[in-house]
Design a protein around this nucleic acid. Structure first.
Lengths: 169, 169
DNA sequence: CGGAATTATTTGCGCACGCAACTATGTTGA
DNA sequence: TCAACATAGTTGCGTGCGCAAATAATTCCG
């Protein structure tokens, strides 16, 4: 769709704003449900999910930060709470002593298994249940399309992209 | 991961995670582009958009907070910057002296017009350009489906159980 | 080998935000 | 009428997070 106006046309605006609305409502509701039922934020839940799926329940900090779409410093702070609660352990990486491994503990697995039904039921109730299998496949393809470029732009930008330097303002 | 019943199946998980990924990458990129080019956050941009579309460029604080999916206190703080920058003015509502009206200024309109091409081009480049008109109509319908229930759940929750409610009314 | 560059993570700092409490105003009903 | 309640918005406080600098370990070459 090659559109050149300065503003979004009606069709574009409708799609875009519904997308924004769905995102805002869905994320806040899933987070609120987890906090209310299990005193764990969606952000913390996602840490447990990613660790539980990793070999040995262990990931390097940077890899986990990337998986959670959070900065490295943000992940450090997020894990402080979870380490204190006993859900995650941190150990220095034996093969690279600069690095830290985050590992989900048995208590963390328990917490994940306890919270998962709340989260999964929420994802299904608020989102997935609105689509039959064929719809869901189409939606998945649609949602996947922009991702590749977004990932490549992110990489290009972090290296150097003059178009994004804050000199223009 | 084990325990099939509690967890999302492969099709569900694929759809859900791509949705999460798209949201995370898209929002951070659109915000970064606006900040880099015009020193204005996506959140502030959206304030200008909503005010510019309102009658007289004016909205009550609560209505603006709802439109921006932010708490009332969050909106108060967000507007502080924008008032100081001269993009928005606040006046007490003549018909209800508890209330405040936020109004976009000529300078705010200028800022919006200056920033709009960056934002609109980003929305098109990273998102809308991936769909032809027919696809976009389908996507819009898909994305719209969960919204009604999410809005009603938010309302029901805020009425019945204040502890669970992150004021998204 | 050894110093510069690179990489992994943490820390200092500041911002944005939500909740709860508070102020001020408006509404209601006995 | 006026006390009780409801509503609009702001403020105090705590949390989560990003950026940039600091720290620590590794790699790269001369």
């Amino acid at each position: 769709m090659l559109n050149e106006g300065i503003w979004l046309n009606q069709r574009e605006q409708n799609a875009w704003r519904k997308f924004l609305t769905l995102n805002a409502l869905l994320m806040s509701r899933l987070d609120a449900d987890l906090v209310a039922a299990h005193s764990i934020s969606l952000a913390e839940y996602e840490v447990l999910v990613h660790l539980s799926e990793a070999l040995g329940g262990t990931m390097r900090m940077s890899a986990l930060a990337n998986a959670c779409f959070v900065s490295r410093s943000g992940l450090t702070r997020r894990l402080e709470h979870m380490v204190a609660a006993g859900f995650v352990e941190k150990t220095t990486c034996p093969t690279d002593r600069r690095g830290m491994n985050a590992t989900i503990t048995p208590l963390g697995f328990d917490k994940l298994n306890e919270a998962a039904p709340t989260h999964v039921n929420g994802v299904r109730r608020y989102f997935l249940s609105k689509y039959d299998e064929a719809d869901l496949d189409i939606l998945t393809i649609f949602v996947d399309r922009p991702i590749e470029e977004l990932e490549s732009v992110a990489v290009a930008t972090s290296e150097c992209d003059s178009a994004r330097c804050p000199s223009l303002s």
